[in-house]
Design a protein around this nucleic acid. Structure first.
Length: 261
DNA sequence: GGCTTATGCGCAG
DNA sequence: TGCGCCTAAGCCA
């Protein structure tokens, strides 16, 4: 479930459960065998997420970089680790916990400079204290591209994916096709603040919860989002059917009636 | 057991 | 713009 909150949550879990003693790093599936050999026996200095990227600082200028892509999944659990089932790209075993990685787009060892170059091309991450929303505003306000494209562009804002894109635009009544340059500063400030709150909630709960209390956030059954994956179903606010179209290669869901600005 | 879909992204053309 | 990567889960028969 890889939007930014997933990676920050993973970074926290890794930091808490793998820090300390030497780590056994292997690649049962084999595709990360060379990388694993480079870092096997190292100690975790720091686990950190930037946008949808996870970095494990293993000292001596070695940084394991993981990007989950669309399919990547991780397991973090108490040792002893069971015999690997399926395609485990990377397994990290510590004294009390282990981490399994499957299906990731990227799992590699980077130098500090390579890591810095990668981070430099990412836009501000709403989950990081050092994030500067002005950087994103500068990009947005000069662009004729639609908001729905800009929000998915990791060099504009990092950590937002298809679910949060759809939901945050809906929560603010924003037309997904509005050019970035037509967005009011006050609306961007509100969207940014909302992304901070929504993503933080995601880190805490491990879920994407976007419904306001009056629309059933705590309800057990029924829709869990305003528009995401609800094509053709009634909008929770105005009951008009939710629209769907492909933008940036991903399905965009929105309410054409509520989101007009 | 097969088919579809998925919270992503780089690359060819 | 569309394809390919890569894995798992949900749905159907």
């Amino acid at each position: 479930m890889p939007e930014g909150h997933t990676l920050h949550r993973l970074a926290r879990a890794a930091q808490r459960r793998l820090k300390g003693g030497p780590l056994r790093v292997t690649s049962p599936q084999g595709r990360f065998a060379d990388g694993a050999a480079l870092v096997d026996g190292a100690t975790l200095r720091r686990a950190e997420a930037v946008g949808k990227h996870l970095f494990l600082d293993l000292g001596a200028g070695r940084h394991v970089h993981v990007h989950l892509g669309l399919f990547g999944r991780t397991t973090v659990a108490a040792t002893p680790a069971p015999a690997p089932v399926g395609a485990v790209r990377m397994r990290i075993e510590g004294a009390t916990a282990y981490l399994d990685l499957r299906g990731a787009t990227i799992c590699e060892v980077l130098t500090r400079a390579e890591r810095a170059r990668l981070v430099a091309r990412l836009g501000p991450d709403p989950l990081r204290r050092d994030a500067d929303p002005d950087r994103a505003w500068t990009r947005l306000s000069l662009s004729s591209r639609p908001l729905a494209s800009l929000l998915m562009d990791q060099s504009v804002v990092s950590g937002v994916g298809n679910a949060f894109r759809a939901e945050v635009l809906c929560r603010h009544g924003l037309d997904p096709y509005l050019p970035g340059s037509h967005l009011a500063r006050v609306d961007w400030d509100a969207v940014w603040a909302d992304l901070v709150a929504l993503l933080r909630d995601g880190v805490r709960t491990g879920r994407i919860r976007t419904l306001r209390p009056e629309h059933g956030r705590s309800r057990r059954s029924g829709p869990r989002h305003y528009v995401y994956r609800r094509a053709g179903e009634p909008c929770l606010v105005c009951a008009e059917p939710v629209s769907v179209a492909v933008v940036e290669g991903r399905r965009l869901y929105w309410c054409a009636s509520c989101q007009r600005r």
